[in-house]
Design a protein around this nucleic acid. Structure first.
Lengths: 223, 223
DNA sequence: CGACGCGTTGATATGGCTCAAGAGTGGTGG
DNA sequence: CCACCACTCTTGAGCCATATCAACGCGTCG
């Protein structure tokens, strides 16, 4: 069997945000709480996150919500199907985005390199989602939260003394809806990891990874 | 809110299998139980299902399994990321596949129409997976099974008298691993739907949809 | 200062899991 | 053609992880 680190976020590995070279780039700023697009909107644009964090969600008629992904710098969001977006998308923190036309993804007629780039982002998204499946369908609450923290730390963690630290711009409810749990369970699971000295919690949204190895073995399903 | 039929399978809508026009197509036959590729294999080829049914799976070190998707005619499987496959893939029934080169997806240099076609398949896969997320994370067992049966019926159901009938080439275990349940729960849920006269079960793997409306309202979360 | 949103914690309920037994079902070889 | 075996499916009983319901603290913002 091929062993994979299980990665709940959209993408397996981050790619540095596109830096303008020759052509001027269309960019866009979006504030927390503001929607970039809604499910069902005609999808003309594709967005590449430059700074900030986005949230992609799906909502059922009765209000049940699933967070499909968090969009971090380097991530691309807004892949259309049948010309429409299939999730809602809003910002968790002030964010800046690079705007691409749908045509840049769909045809190689224009900027071939950009086309390639967007295509590759789409493929990365597919493989990232496959990890998320395993997590949603087959993992316990601790395993889910451990996996989540690990991926986030890998992608956007910052060293703090001997440890890695990670900031969580999303609420416990967002994490719950990403992992298929309730806020209460997420909160309890944080407490559990904190009490077993595997993580430390600074200000509600700042987690320090004290025992990365322990966290990793929890995520992979070691008892 | 934009209301979506929730669709657990890979793709929202089937597309007719590619029919050879000028160039000869490379095709391939695969028997039940045989693997088309494994997670981690170098991904040189992309496959379009012409006939049969494939199964895409992910397995954890301790044996927990997640069925990522079932590949029906018109579906495309084997999207690579970083040049590798990220799931295992085998056949549930004898299947024939149209083989494409990875380059056909990745560059528009060769057959532009084919490139487009594969790209669109990738985008459809992304949106299909988003539906699957909602199902895995937020639905009850009946809702899951109802959604599953509906999508399958839409895609590969056949009329039988006044009703639609659908064949299930996969085991209860496969369905369980697709829906994030156990075999026992899947079996019980089938029984429950059968006893409430919403479906009828012919030969273990043949389901007749007696009350599609009821099934639909269960899938969407009506109590 | 009050209100509201968010997070934590506790008590209890319950849906789906686990363990276990039996009933089909299909394949194989005598 | 039948007997046997392996495998899948079904059903039951009990349990456990997570949901639900509820209370409360804390920080933020008007």
């Amino acid at each position: 069997m091929y062993v994979t680190a299980t990665l709940p976020l959209m993408q397996t590995r981050s790619i540095p945000p596109l830096r303008p070279r020759i052509a001027r780039q269309r960019t866009l700023t979006i504030k927390p709480g503001k929607h970039l697009f809604l499910e069902g909107d005609a999808a003309d644009k594709i967005y590449e996150v430059a700074t900030g964090v986005l949230r992609l969600t799906r909502i059922m008629e009765d209000g049940r919500r699933q967070v499909i992904a968090f969009g971090y710098p380097g991530d691309t969001v807004g892949f259309p199907s049948d010309g429409r977006y299939h999730t809602d998308c809003d910002a968790l923190v002030p964010s800046t985005l690079i705007v691409h036309r749908r045509a840049d993804l769909e045809t190689a007629k224009g900027d071939a390199a950009l086309h390639q780039r967007l295509l590759r982002a789409a493929l990365r998204e597919i493989s990232g989602m496959q990890d998320h499946f395993m997590m949603l369908g087959r993992k316990s609450s601790v395993e889910k939260l451990a996996s989540f923290l690990l991926v986030l730390t890998d992608r956007v963690g910052a060293p703090l003394g001997d440890f890695d630290q990670v900031n969580l711009p999303m609420t416990r409810g967002d994490i719950a809806d990403f992992l298929g749990l309730t806020t209460e369970t997420v909160s309890r699971t944080f407490t559990q990891l904190r009490k077993s000295q595997i993580i430390a919690i600074d200000h509600i949204n700042t987690v320090v990874i004290l025992k990365p190895t322990a966290l990793r073995s929890i995520a992979e399903g070691a008892d």
